[in-house]
Design a protein around this nucleic acid. Sequence first.
DNA 1: TAACGGAGCGCC
DNA 2: AAAGGGCGCTCCGTTA
Length: 531
Amino acid sequence: MNVAVAAGPGASGALRPRGRGGGAVADLAAAVRELEATRPRWVWADTHEVYPALLDAGVRVGRCHDLALTEGLLLGYEGRHDEPRSAGAAHARLHGLPVPQEPHGPRARQATLFEEEPPAPDAELVAEVHADQLGRIEAVADPRRFRLLVAAESAGALIAAEMGREGLPWREDVHDELLTGLLGPRPVHGMRPARLQALADQVSAAFGAPLNPDSPQQIIRAFKAAGLSVASSRAHDIKDVDHPGVAPLLAYKELARIHSFHGWAWAGQWVRGDRLRPEYVPAGVVSGRWATSGGGALQIPKVLRRVVVADEGWTLVVADAAQLEPRVLAAMAGDDGLARAAGQDDLYRALARSFGGERDHAKIAMLSAMYGGTSGDAPKLLAVMRQRFPRAYQFVEDAARTGEEGGLVRSWLGRTSPAPSARWRELVLGPEGRRAARDRGRFTRNFVVQATAAEWALTLMAVLRGLLPAPAALVFFQHDEVMVHCPAELAGEVVTAVGAAAEEATRLLFGATPVRFPMQALAVRCYADAK
DNA sequence: TAACGGAGCGCC
DNA sequence: AAAGGGCGCTCCGTTA
């Protein structure tokens, strides 16, 4: 049963069960709670807009259909990536009305703060757009897969909202202690911490002139003045340079990043009550990966992982998919040889024999095939791959070729790469054309793998959500890694659920396949212990 | 003064 | 001869 939902002013809203007239309700959350017992699929314009208020009221739902996310998938599939994907825009297109432009960027968002009253809840509009989308889904090449994509994407939106509310356990005292140990005591606002300042002074002393180590230009100039030419101020390009300023500069870079990126100011903004609450953006990346807007939660440095500690009596179950992308390629390409290797726990080890016995060579070959790498030993190893695993090789080559020619590629479930920009179409005809074409080829080559890996991970998480015993909760998701916070006595059950979810995700995407997707799930007290 | 692109680096 | 995909975020330094 599908039930269209629209939120209205305050707690009110409107419901419209499929095929029946619905109506306005004074208390939307109460109405949803009551109907949830019948396990409906809730259809709404935008999970991000609707669901948080339900969660505030203590109402969780099992499944939904997110019109905006689905519209994005469909528009992409139809080669219309640039059109606005809100439910309102979709409705306007249906009726040939002027399409409201998507607000984007900080300015646009501010402007909408002062706009008129929210429109009356319109479950009719929701139902209409939904019906249109269902029709368009049936028109794609493989509706079964696309329906799975829509379901996973929508489930992801529910999870993102729930995780945003739950928050990642984050010990403020441990964080402060760690920062103080690395940087010195917390400075007054705007000042450099003592240890950073000391390192900056050492750098200046080594070069014999005041130098701001945050300025790439000044760094390059300083090396030049010392008679040394460096390609850039990047750590990688200066680490082997013989100069007394190098060591303190590298130390400064490492610590300065922690200070500015995940330091006290950051914690003040994103951490409260020993919980980090970033804003997840499902499908924020064109490949379908999630992004965050604020909080930097997808880039938590490894050194900070010891700050993530389970509550007393609770545990963290940390699980990550091993070698996800090559396994995805093996399953998609239907390459028997690669699929056999991907039936092993260590795919690269299983491939080593084909690459002269070196596990590292197998790894370089696979990564180069998926990323378009060509440096070092890559060409030689790719030639071996082409010969030993022709279908897998051809699969990514085809994706690259399509991209170079300006075409669209799709993930396994049907997520579609954006069309090339007008700028690219111009560029590709000019003197830099070959380069532009190759760049896009690398993008589409990687897209088919990365986007399918994201689908597998999203499906896994959606399944896992349904298997978790209360009060276990998903608290973190990072591309191919999930974390569950649960009472210690449930750890075993959660570990089992992770394994079952991985198997189910594999079955849903690929059916019967020799490829395995091992997930290492570990119950730990602290994220740093998961390694 | 605000806005913006580039550099740099963290994560996958 | 070399040539690696995707992001977010903060800083600098220039520009409007």
